[in-house]
Amino acid sequence: MSNELIQTNTAKLTAAFATALVVAETQIHDDLAYNSIKEWDSTAHMLLIAELENVFNLMLDTDDIIDMSSVAKAKAILGKYGVAF
């Protein structure tokens, strides 16, 4: 997997989180967790899922939606769908 592709995917993921949670991209880091900031509530979580599915053109399983509890976890889950970070 090329570094360029990984960087592109990381940028897309960061932008998707920032768009869905309506926060600055600088706030998006691996440790950021669900419900740890007021912007990442249950409603925003569903918007985040829709944004990630759209950006990476995939459909997440329900178990993965439930398990997506942090940015790091999102990267690991998306990895199962062939998105490299």
């Binding site: 569903m46 918007l47 899922i49 829709a50 944004e51 599915e53 759209n54 459909m59 329900t62």
Partner: peptide, 12 residues
């Protein structure tokens, strides 16, 4: 409803 709403959420 689950699958359709996920598609709709993209456009709010």
């Amino acid at each position: 409803c689950q699958l359709a709403s996920k598609l709709m959420l993209r456009h709010k």
